[in-house]
Amino acid sequence: MGQHVKAGELEIWTEQVGEGPDVLLVGGLGDTVESWQFQLDGLADRYRITAFDNRGAGRTAMPEGQPTVEAMADDAAAVLRSLGVSSAHVAGFSGGSIIAQELALRHPYAVRSLVLQSTWSAMDDFMKTMIRAFHWQAELAPSERDFLEGFFIWVYTARAHNDGTVDRFIEDAMAFPHKQSTEDFLAFADACARNVTAGRLDGIQVPVLVLAGGADRMSRPELGKAVADEIPGARFEVMEEEAHQPFQEIPDPWNVRVDEFWQEAERLRSGIPSS
């Protein structure tokens, strides 16, 4: 069962499962703890995993004022402090990967390693146009289902649309009792569009794995590669047949890859050579 934890002035909804080295999972645009269910279920036998609802998503309220990625990174650090976690392996996807970048820059001692899925360091004109399109889609879609069907074109592979996976995700989203408001969804999107970490990423000094989907039309592989190129020692890998959220579409291979990376990062922390 989850709980609200105090993070500054916010009460942030948080779930923690498992035993072992600490892992913090940071969700993207509008996503909640539930977006990480395959990781909460699949990795809790090896790690103590914490996931939380970002401000303005799920069971965490949006405070007054314009949200920023920096503030959301501070929220993530506050969640760890509230739970007595001194440092964690951090994984974030999409907007959550931007929060994870800022977390590593603003609170370096809280981060053991980074997994950045579907990431970027500065939105290019293509992505900024996409964000503007989200505005009119969210405001003018005839129904919630219509909006989700259109939005998920950007998120999941054609395979997932054609085999019924996306239909199941849509049913789950429509049944979820803690829906994000249109205003909060767009405020989060705009915060991600404003944020720029390019030119600062060489300040990240922990092991980093950047994962991109070869079929991701939102945060294309070249954007992730630019992130990896700027971070000292970062690894960059493309999952050729995948889109924006492979941790949901192919959770078992994704979990295996990040588990390997976290185990290696733990060995490095302990001074044990890689085999």
Rank of each mutant, 00 (worst) to 15 (best):
M174L: 15
P207E: 07
R106I: 01
G28P: 08
R112P: 00
T32H: 05
A76R: 12
A138P: 00
P67C: 03
A160W: 06
I231G: 06
E11I: 00
A78L: 12
Q66W: 02
G203C: 07
K225W: 07
P273M: 05
Q117E: 13
T68D: 07
I131P: 01
V115Y: 05
H107Q: 10
R269S: 13
I153V: 15
P142S: 09
F261V: 01
E139S: 04
D124E: 03
V227H: 05
A228K: 01
Q263C: 02
F152H: 11
L103W: 05
F169V: 12
E264K: 11
V90Y: 11
P177S: 04
M72C: 07
L10G: 01
M218C: 11
V166E: 03
V166H: 05
L223Y: 09
R55A: 15
T14Y: 05
L40I: 08
A138K: 10
D229Y: 02
F247L: 05
F93T: 14
G96K: 10
S181L: 04
E242N: 11
R220I: 12
T60G: 08
E242T: 10
L268R: 15
L201F: 03
F151Y: 10
V26W: 02
A141W: 05
C192L: 06
L24F: 04
M127S: 07
A138E: 10
R267F: 02
L43N: 04
M72W: 07
P207S: 08
A44H: 12
K225C: 00
